[in-house]
Simulated assay, not measured.
Amino acid sequence: MATTVLHTADTRGNANHGWLNAFHSFSFANWYNPDRIQFGTLRVLNDDTIAGGMGFGTHPHNNMEIITIPFEGDLAHKDSMGNSSIIKSGDIQVMSAGSGIQHSEFNPNADQQTKLFQIWLFPNKKDVTPRYQQITLDQAAQKNNFAQILSPNAEDEGVWIHQDAWFYLADFDADFSKTYAIKKPGNGVYIMVISGTIMVDGQLLNTRDAIGITDFETLEITAKTAAKFLIMDIPMEM
């Protein structure tokens, strides 16, 4: 029988620094909740709004797969691998921090805020050579579909990471329903609603609510309103 954990939007941690308004699904920085350390290999899901012209100065990471998905505005990225790019709404970026990287992230637009999810997954290999990848997603592919945006395989659709994980973005019309099948035995899913209202395995989820589900093979996901959501299919064991 499926096991679920519900994380409603109002139970997330929040740090509003003025230039940054961050909501944390899992313990992060000064917000600590012993019941919200991680979900399987998913360690961080931050829902960030960055004010115009502001951002994160150069800082280090290692042995983490870091995925950034902007939903509004742009993010300027620079790193110690020599990459310098603008990540736009509709893009996805991944960094395998591996043996160690340093990077900075700024909102390059003075007159527009940037909204994004930043997600950290523990890798299945340590101290790999750091790598960077960024692509523009096919928005049309998400309409009434689970559009794959991340996988463990470089030849598959989307970006790839050092973990047996698959991410999907979906943009459902109201009343549309589709069955999701787990990608790998032993994996679980963590589903975050970006906008709208959906029903997952009998649980109603509103904007920025999330649910983690394990011990299942298929799930029925139904949009109660027009809705966008992110599915993260991830190993539960480190």
Score class of each variant (00 low, 15 high):
N107G: 13
V200L: 11
I67E: 00
D48P: 05
N124G: 09
F117K: 01
T8I: 04
D47C: 10
L205I: 06
Q112H: 13
N21A: 11
G90W: 01
D201T: 02
V44W: 00
I135V: 13
Q38E: 14
N30S: 12
Q142W: 01
Q93G: 06
R12V: 05
W31N: 08
N46M: 13
A141T: 08
V200P: 11
F216H: 03
A22R: 04
D91P: 09
T49D: 05
N30F: 11
N206R: 13
L121Q: 01
G100K: 04
R131L: 07
R43H: 04
L42A: 06
G90Q: 05
G98S: 12
D111L: 12
M192K: 10
G212F: 01
M232P: 04
A165W: 02
V200H: 03
T197E: 14
G98K: 03
A15C: 06
G40M: 07
D156Y: 03
A29E: 08
K183V: 08
A227P: 06
T68Q: 02
K184D: 14
G82C: 07
I37A: 08
A140S: 15
F26Q: 03
F39P: 01
V200M: 14
N107S: 06
L121T: 13
I234V: 15
N145W: 01
A15H: 04
H17M: 07
P185A: 15
T68M: 04
G40P: 10
M81S: 03
N206L: 11
H61D: 06
F167D: 03
D74K: 14
D48A: 07
M1N: 04
D35V: 09
L121A: 03
Q142I: 07
A147L: 10
A29S: 15
Y32W: 08
F146K: 02
E72F: 05
W160D: 10
F229D: 03
S96K: 09
E65Q: 09
H61F: 07
